[in-house]
């Protein structure tokens, strides 16, 4: 796409549909927020369904949740909070034009995101899935054994299956967002290093940052809802 104000090589590119850089930046911020509103509505039904069934089957969900380790969830929460902080810093550095510091923050964020996914897979998903404890018809047989092995009381397996259906659906969708975040961060770093004409100001970093903070927000609610369920 051509620019019509490329008088200065380092000047931000203004796309042809915009009048000036201010309008372009505001439009991008507004567009991103519209997208986040849409993302909120995307997660909302899942949260609602989870809340509804927790309300109806609290005791069984409480027992089922014993297989999740709040410590691992806590570590992941901490990791995501750190990454969110790093992204906020990287926007700060981008605004000040300190590219090296900005890149370091972005790399740190990617490391956090990767660690998040690794922990999730290594300690939560893979052990469960390898024991057949994921929502499938065999869950009913597998789950009580698995719970016994772990020394926790087993809930009514039908309700535990509902719990784990929602657990895998919601955390899976969240992890998908984290994975997409990693790809987007890598692309951002690549373009910054290449000094691409797409990225001449801090706005792309801020856009990606907004997305990442949203991913963090979702987890802020997921953690207490799934890992820290109160005793009924």
């Amino acid at each position: 796409m051509s620019s019509h104000e490329s008088t200065h090589p380092d000047a931000p590119v203004v796309y042809e549909q915009f009048e000036d850089i201010g309008q372009q930046q505001e439009t991008y911020v507004l567009g991103m927020w519209s997208f986040l509103v849409n993302e909120t509505m995307f997660f909302a039904p899942l949260f609602f369904v989870y809340g509804l069934y927790t309300w109806k089957h609290h005791a069984d969900f409480y027992l089922a949740h014993a297989l999740l380790d709040w410590r691992i969830g806590g570590i992941n929460t901490f990791i995501l909070l750190m990454s969110s902080f790093a992204v906020a810093l990287s926007v700060h550095y981008a605004q000040k034009g300190r590219t090296r510091a900005q890149l370091n923050c972005l790399w740190f964020t990617i490391a956090c995101a990767a660690a998040f996914i690794w922990i999730k897979l290594q300690f939560e998903w893979i052990p469960k899935i390898s024991h057949g404890v994921f929502p499938n018809p065999e869950f009913i047989q597998n789950y009580p054994h698995y719970a016994m092995e772990h020394g926790v009381p087993a809930a009514d397996p039908y309700k535990a299956r509902l719990y784990y259906s929602l657990y895998f659906a919601i955390t899976g969708l969240h992890a998908l967002h984290v994975a997409i975040g990693i790809i987007v961060f890598l692309a951002l770093i690549y373009l910054i290093k290449k000094k691409s004409s797409l990225i001449t100001d801090y706005i792309p970093t801020e856009m990606v940052g907004l997305y990442w903070h949203f991913v963090d927000l979702v987890w802020i609610f997921l953690y207490p809802l799934f890992y820290l369920m109160p005793r009924p």
Binding site: V29, L30, S34, V37, T40, F47, F48
Partner: peptide, 15 residues
């Protein structure tokens, strides 16, 4: 932007 940011949360509570 404030309206969008908080409006989204508000709308989700309609569920």
């Amino acid at each position: 932007v404030k309206a969008f940011a908080y409006g989204g949360f508000f709308w989700a509570t309609l569920l």
